[in-house]
Amino acid sequence: MIPFTKYLKLTAVALIGLTLCAQGARTPQHIDIKQLSKTVEDVVVPLPNEIFGALNKLGAVNWKEHVRSDKGTNFTERPRIALLLGTVIADGFVAVQAEDAAAVKEIGQRVLALAKGIGVGNSITPHAKAIIEAADKRNWEAVRQELDRTQNSVQQAMNEVHDEKLSQLVSLGGWLRGTEVLTSVVTKHFSTDGAELLHQPDLLSYFQTRLEAMPEFKLPIIREIEDALVQVKPLIDVGNARIPQESVRKINEITTRLGYGIVTRD
């Protein structure tokens, strides 16, 4: 005879199995993507550490050599500050990977100064403080979380005052710096899996569309980025093919040039 507890367990297992089967049966195995076009929401731009995490799994990366000490110029044009802010936050994620407390603290202060320059300093002060405190304690997970919160708060504050375009420039600045670091790492230690991390054609199209809708920002760096994305697109939009080493190197050249342009006055 089956003991009651065993009977109970077997029933529970059977029930869970049936529920999963029912759920699986209901879920279509295939959907028509073209039909979704009207209901698709905007993309959420991945944080640099999402890419760095995947990169780390491919082998040890010497993150220290990617930590940047250049603080960038003090700009007065808000679109330039927004781009630089995104770049500096991305630098924060690099410094966390390198576990460089001094760089993280400096970046925390720089983020606050830039946020003030763009008029959203109030919402960033607590995060900047938390970044510095967590770096002092070498609590890298907390620093990562605060950098994410910082970017989110900056963008929310911008969206609230209908500065969505500046908010998108923050994302773009971060993405460019992340791509610069990614291509630098993969150029030095090439692997097809590393190069595959560049396969982001929809994200690139998203940024292209956003930049096209910013004709009022008559800054050379914005137009330079727009032109550069046109050059990068065919290098990463390769369908099921592999991204070759030469393409990675070219993207690195382009993003390094843009990165220099973002931190330097025209």
């Binding site: 959420v44 991945p46 991390l197």
Partner: peptide, 28 residues
């Protein structure tokens, strides 16, 4: 798991669907 601060949101009627496009990375 590192949970992102950013999120999608909205409202839907019963039986309605919404698609969200997201860039994902092999290895994660």
């Amino acid at each position: 798991f590192q949970v992102r601060e950013d999120y999608w949101g909205g409202d839907l009627g019963s039986g309605e669907k919404k698609a969200v496009r997201q860039q994902l990375f092999k290895g994660n």
